[in-house]
Each structure stands twice: as structure tokens, then as C-alpha cells.
Design a protein around this nucleic acid. Sequence first.
RNA 1: GGCCCGUUCGUCUAGGGGUUAGGACGUUAGAUUUUCAUUCUAGAAACAGGGGUUCGAUUCCCCUACGGGCUACCA
Length: 506
Amino acid sequence: MPDKKVRVRFAPSPTGGLHLGGVRTVLFNYLFAKKHHGDFVLRIEDTDQNRYVEGAEQYIMDCLKWCGLFPDESPEAGGPYAPYRQSERKSIYREYAEKLVRQGHAYYAFDTPEELEQNRREIPNFQYGLAYRDGLRNSLSLTQHEVDELLDRHTPHVIRIKMPADERVSFDDVIRGHVSFETNQVDDKVLLKADGMPTYHLAVVVDDYLMKISHAFRGEEWLPSAPVHLLLWEYLGWKADMPQWAHLPLILKPDGHGKLSKRDGARLGFPVYAMSWFDAKTGELTPGFRELGFLPEAFLNLLATLGWNDGTDQELFTLDELIEKFSIDRVSKAGAKFDFEKAKWFNAEWIKKSEAGTLKSEVRKVLEDKGVVVTDENYLNQVIDLVKDRCVLLTDFYQQSAYFFEQPKEYDVNSVKPKWTDAKAEFFNAFIGTINSTKVFEPAALETDFKALAEEKGIKAGELMLPFRIMLVGAKFGPHVFDIATLLGKEETVKRIEKALVAFNN
RNA sequence: GGCCCGUUCGUCUAGGGGUUAGGACGUUAGAUUUUCAUUCUAGAAACAGGGGUUCGAUUCCCCUACGGGCUACCA
């Protein structure tokens, strides 16, 4: 069997925010493509005009950019199989649907949505298929003359696949192995809608064929309709070119049950979308991982390990490592509950291992969004190095480093005042003198001077550390005090001591 | 209801006919840090149940239970 060039696609509908599971599907497609030196295409499945949302397509592409997952072919980038928007390919699909009708593998159906709804209501387990199609209004039950007349009058109609009787459709899924279905149990899915647009079922087969897709990875929710797709590949005469299928396990709610949804994020307090999504219709803004302070590397890393591992204990992977180590058949079969705690751990790890330089622009944005002005790049780098080990989210950099850029607005006086004495005030007055007269202003020397002076004044150094910290930071957190003081500089340190002294002595 | 898929610590998972069933998150305890976080050490914590097959099943097979998905002119 000749090795086909690897070509995979991510085919989202532009209907709203891009879900975690969607990004994981992109990622697995992307990793597989890059690993096998293949192509990764982005195809927009905008065949449902009712659900189409303005701006959603651009948003999806922005999400991919943020993640660093660039498609080789897309509506934006173009490519040899353009157009990559199904709405722009509308004219292509009808031909194939009609061909199926001529071959007897599909038929026209004239039933109105209301009629079908009524059937579903009144007949238990109703499905448009073997058991009921003869009693419905379609080109199988009507005479040729009746059908022609209906068609001539432009009666709204759809084209449905005619599922064969008593057959078994089976295939080998890369992730779950052998899967099989009884055709009698599958209904006659609509292929072409009354508005002339294809449904997903037709479009995915036609486009995957035309775009020479070699491997089709999608969520497990598609498994039940796989027999329809398989039959279509066969009926259209393309079976030899059919991609290999892999149905990915779903990402589940952390508590309770079911697929993870946007609502769960709001309810449980974590993001579900890659980036914030603003719904113009409802005016609702749904926060995303990016806005919450996740690094794209961490986001990808946590998604990759949700349902996949390389067989070792390694959990932290760069994108390049993932490309190198990824293997679709090591993806697990079972759905995975999303754990936000672990997600945060991944982000903390990535912040810790990232260089200040690569964090800089994001941190600057976080600070500036809060009104903190950053002027000195080098200073910012040093601040980041000093505090990044205590940040879980990028947004934590505000709380952890704002005091390096502006004096504390208030002090945690409750931690100081009860034990504050005139002697301590005197110590700090004297310490200002020490600082001013010191030549080398660096942590170790400063600490030595601090302790020497404390001893001289007969105060335990430990009693003075906390007040000193609160003078500089305003609260009980942060790196070593002497590191903070050193980075703040002589002048600023003195200023802060003086200012705090006023507050403490009051 | 029908069809399909799944089931190892609370969660993500490794493993695989004979193992002290391993790791990670979280959690508990301790050490370090004269703050907080980091870091380090230790601990608790799992093979859904029942039948087979086998000298031996958590691992293979069947059934049950449970969970999930689908059941639209949505994707």
C-alpha cells in the first residue's frame, strides 16, 4: 500500500467560543501532521446559516495564533484546495447528492419539519429510516410522476441517504480498535438541506476526499454517525481514499457528569474557552485561558496530557517535544474529567521554567492593565526573576510585583502595631543612616548590617524583619526582604522606610 | 427507550497473566524559608461486581452494574 502524504484538518463551526476540547482536537491534528511532515488544514464548516456567528471565524484563527498552531492551509492562508469555507463550496455538494440519488443510495424527501416533529412526538422511537420511510413523503414512497411534479413546483425538499437493510458497517478506529454498526439501526440522515447547503455528513466526506485528507481525528460524539460517513465513502466510489479515523475521548465536567460546557466554567470558576469570547447577542463575555493568565505553552501542555502520555513519567513537554513524541494510538479511550487544579500546576511550572525575557511582554501587559507604569526593561526582568516562582497565573504578577513599581498604598499595620515600640522606630531611623553610608548595596551585606545594628540596639533581628518587609511591600509576602530592598535601590528603600515610619508611629 | 463507546487512587494516568500495582495534581504530616510562595522528605489513597479460561487473573472472554455519547433540514 503506497504511503499517502499525511494531511489532517481541523473543521470547526464558527458558532462561538473555542472550547478546550476543540483546542485539544486541533493540537492532536497538528502534532500528528508535524510529526509526519504532513499538512494541517483549517476548514470552516459554516453550513448552518442559523447558527453562524459573525466574528467567530476570525476568533478561531486568533486562538490558533495564540497557541502557535498555524495551519498550512486555511481561509486566511489559502492553499491548493481552496476555498476552505464550506459556504463558499456550496455548489460542489449538490452534484454528489444527486449522484447518490441516481445510484439509488439516496432519495428526495418532501416531509415538512412540522410533519417530522409530529411523528417524533407521536411514534415512540421514531426515526426516518427502514421502518418508516415507506409511509413518509419521499421519492421511495411516491410515484415517479408525483416526485417530478413536486420537483417541478420547487417543493422544498431534502436529500437523505438510504441506509441499506441488514448490513453491518465496521471499521478500525486508530484509538478504539474495531467498531461496528447495524445499518438497520441507523437512520436516513439528511445529506442536503432544503436551502441547498450540505449537512455535516455530506460535506465532511466530500471535502475530506477533495482535500485529500489522510487521517480524520474528531471528538467521540461523532462515532454514532461514522457508519453514514463510511457508506458515503463507499457509495461515492472513494473507499480506497478514505482517511483513517480516530475518535478522541471527550473532556468531561470535573464534578457531576457529562461533557464539559461553557456553563460549567461559569459555575465552577474556571475558563472553558481558549480566549475570551464576547457574545454580541447576549452581551455576555465568557473568559478564556489567555485572559486568565495562562501561557499558551502551558495550555497546550495540559491539553496534550489530558488523554495522552508518552509512556514515561514525563509531564512537562514543549511543543517540539510533543511533535517528536506524539503518537495517536497512545491516546486513551476513556473520557477525562477536567481538573483545573492540575491545569494551574502546569501553568505555574511553565512560568517557573520560562526566562524573564520571554515572560516580559505578558507581565508588562498585566501590570499596565492595572495602571502600573513600567519604564525600565532591565528592572522588569529582575523583578520577574525574583517573583516568578510564586506566580501560578500571569495575572499573579500584579499582586506579586506591583510594589516594585509603586510605594505601598496601605500597610498591614495589624501585623506591626501591636508589637511596635519606640526602640524599633529608633532602630529604623538609625538603619536609614546605615543605608545612606553604605557603599555596597547588596543583599548579603545589607543583611549583615541590619543584624549588627539590631544587636547593637538590643533588639532581636527577627522582630524587625517583618516590620521592614511591611515597610517595603505593605504586606506579608514576597521574596527575601534584602533582595527586595536591593532591587528597589538605596534611595527608594530609604523613602519607604521614612514613609512607613510615619504610619507606624501614628 | 434504542444504538454505540467506555470503566486502575478524589482527579489525570502508567502497567499488564505471577509487580511491595508506578508517577503526577490535590490532600495530610514534617523539614527549609525570621513573611508568603518555592523546594525537600514522608504518609493516606485505586484495579466496579459476578462468572468463566488458567497452576495463577487487575491484565484475556462473557454477563451485570455504572458512566458517557448519539438518537435535528446543529456541528
